[in-house]
Design a binder for these strands. Structure first.
Lengths: 168, 168
DNA sequence: GAGGAATAGTTTAGACTTAAAGTAATTTCC
DNA sequence: GGAAATTACTTTAAGTCTAAACTATTCCTC
């Protein structure tokens, strides 16, 4: 490469990467957001049509399903990444539907343990099965390699976001 | 490889890929969702703290910023991937804040065109600048290669979801 | 050109969500 | 052991969001 060409190339690079320009990052974020919205909307729609249940309720039940002994509202709130107040309302509605129960914590009287009822467990099992198939169908055009690569890269992205947001 | 070993390997594969098992896909979806939630929560928080604005309002203004001549509520609704009713409410609030204006469509009296006001444009410019930096910082641990690979794979995923949800 | 279908947007009822303030119980620390 | 801080959860006010029903207008078709 001649020096003139090298200089020209550098100038272009400079322009493309001008300070404060982060178009590629923005583009990635917008694509991630759009993809997420697309999948989420479809799942919401199907959960409602097939089971008359909302995604937040499904999500809450999914958390409880993994912990047969139940968990506190605070733990739910953390795992679901929503506020405590939000969980309080969701739990109220799911208790009213008899999908879960709320019990006093044995030793800490501020705390409550919620867990799936037998009815809730049956209901969730039916939903989870179809839900998994929906996801698989939506991801159907990805090869096993794509799946693995995407999962890995999202892990890296998630770690990057965490390190940038929760100060070391 | 001996025949016995080959048989054993196949049996394991069979178990790992039992019909109806889509753990890898589910895992990818949960990771995508978690990553999205993480980024979104942080952006919401910063938009509120720095500019006292919500993410939906920012999003709506971002759409309008790209179309100086404005667009209809229906177009906004499509681009933002939310319902018409939702847009109606958002537009009402942004009009009240004088960030946007709503005008009668020239020829179609059912339709309205909304566009940024000068105030809205200034406000958005300030926000967009910081917003881009926040994103860049959150994605900071990704190499240029990672960025490109992730963007490409998300594009593929998005296409897969679309083809699985909107019947050909 | 009139009737019916389609389109653009609004309204409504209800669920979800948050931040902030509030209550009650527990832990900490002197 | 008692005041102060923290923790667990609830409540409140306001915004966001959806599906479904509704209004007004335009398009289509005969």
């Amino acid at each position: 490469m001649h020096l003139e060409q090298a200089a020209a190339f550098d100038a272009e690079t400079k322009i493309a990467e001008a300070p404060g320009d982060h178009k590629a990052e923005l583009r990635l974020w917008l694509r991630l957001l759009a993809t997420n919205t697309l999948i989420e909307a479809e799942i919401r729609r199907r959960l409602r049509e097939r089971f008359e249940v909302t995604l937040p309720r499904f999500d809450l039940m999914a958390q409880l399903e993994r912990k047969p002994h139940g968990m506190t509202l605070g733990e739910l709130s953390q795992r679901m990444m929503v506020t405590n107040g939000n969980v309080t309302g969701l739990v109220d509605r799911l208790v009213a539907e008899e999908a879960i129960v709320r019990k006093q914590h044995k030793s800490d009287r501020r705390s409550h343990i919620v867990s799936l009822t037998e009815k809730g467990r049956r209901q969730f099992a039916r939903m989870a099965k179809e839900h998994e198939d929906w996801i698989a169908a939506m991801l159907g055009d990805l090869s096993q390699n794509d799946l693995a690569a995407l999962t890995r890269l999202l892990g890296k992205l998630k770690a990057s976001v965490r390190s940038a947001t929760s100060p070391a």
